[in-house]
Design a protein around this nucleic acid. Sequence first.
RNA 1: CAUUAAUGG
Length: 258
Amino acid sequence: LISWNIILHMYSKQQCFELVKKFFETMPLHNAISMTIMLMTYSQAGDVEAARFVLDSTKEHNLTLWNAMLIAYIQNGHLSEATKIFSSTLREKDTSSSNTMVTAYAQSGHVDQAQKLFNEMPVRDIVSWTAMLSAYAQVGRLEEAQRIFHSMPKHNSFTWTAMLAAYAQNGQSIKCIEFFHEMGIVESPNDVCFTCVLQSCSHTGDMRRGLPYFLSITLDYAIDCPKKQHFSCMIDLLARGGYLEDAKDLLSFMPFAP
RNA sequence: CAUUAAUGG
């Protein structure tokens, strides 16, 4: 059963919805994990009704399944339904449930509600802190974002990149680039960091600044070649700098992906 | 073996 679930999950990750459905029906047994995978699959396919049906047809509703249902409502524009379940239906919630709601509030522009929930949480993990930091970044409250970054008990690559992104998205290109170097001392940058930095370089309007970063993706770090995000930034950078021909060249050398 | 946080066009 474990192997079937692994395969089911693989299809789901690749968004082969029909295959998932077929494979699910082929499986001799289902457990809570299979059901969660199905629920998430319907959610990503935009079918909340089907997702709800999965939940309702499951005998044992564990918390992970409910959390998945929260996501399904949120992803499909039913935040109020998610809120209702979160605050009334569920008697037991874990940190993931709350983190999900914090993110949902933040993404719908309700930073204050996100903060309120964050404050009320009995336990906060690094995901909660990152979610809160991004919440402030998204509405341009950089000071608050910075404050959160320095208040959190721990850092990982997500927290660093969230802060980088905060600078990048609020036009603080120089801060972003400086911060990138600050980070390099303690944490090895991942592909997302480079996306943020390249974006910032592009915004400074100085293309010579971006090129070294682009090259160091492959040369200095163990990142599996530049991805399409990085090409995207580089093309943007070249085009803005007036090197339209070079941008076209880069496009034609780029390996295509889904 | 399942659910939550970061990134460009």
